[in-house]
Amino acid sequence: MTAVTAPPAAPTTAARPPEARRRSPLAWAREHLLLAVTVLIFVFMLLPNVIIFWMSFNQPQGKFDYVWHRFSLAAWQNPCANGEMCHSIGLSLRIGVVATIVATVLGTMIAFAMVRYRFKARSGINALLFLPMAAPEVVMGATLAALFFNTIGPGGLGFWTITIAHVMFCVSYVVVTVKSRLAGMDPTLERAAQDLYATPTQTFRYVTLPLVAPGIAAAALLAFALSIDDYIVTVFTAGNLETFPMYIWGSVQRAYPAQIDVIGSLMLIVTMAIIALSQVLGRARSARR
């Protein structure tokens, strides 16, 4: 076997592309330094999710599921052991759905107007859309609480005030997302439809809407995620109600059951499954074409 092995290194070096020869060892180290730094930062970003999954199988020693004690499936078998928690999740989901629908409709309308029409006051409207994204959340929450205190009084706070607040801070994100999809659309497609004698309604229904739909769907998902995860604005507008983020906040003072980590893991798993499913469906659809 040894007799047939390749001749010594010299020809190999000659065969190397000139680019590789020019590389100094320093450049190699630099490249791998960047890789190492990136890997470390990814560990920093992903570690909490791993810990959440890990701690969801913990049987905490005291009231707080912060330190590993013993393996147990109890939390996964009975995620709603604390009725209060599941009640707050239900409330958060209901607020999220209503706020998402309203914000998506309002935001999509604004996005269409901004991209398709010319009108005055455009820069003023842009500023009004930008400001809610630029204001610190605590300021939005506090000012909105001041408005509700002054008009309906502290007793009137509840489901609708939370939903109103969520729609308010979601609209701008919907506009930005739908707008970028609309702006990237080929305008000739709509003109082609009109050339083929499609009415404006037909053009919208069969050409524009299907093309913008992914943007609207992404905007809706974003709005839902923003709504369901919000704590600061919610706490100022919630009155006596308790949403899921507020429940977690309270748990840090009372008791932090492993069930919260189960929900935290489920949130990740379910969203990833939805994304994977939509990818698979999208691929299947494009394969059929």
Binding site: L47, I52, Y66, Y231, I248, W249, V252, G264, S265, L268
Partner: peptide, 11 residues
């Protein structure tokens, strides 16, 4: 960020 940021902060 698909997991609630409060749970991740508590982790």
């Amino acid at each position: 960020s698909f997991t609630s940021f409060l749970i991740r902060t508590i982790a």
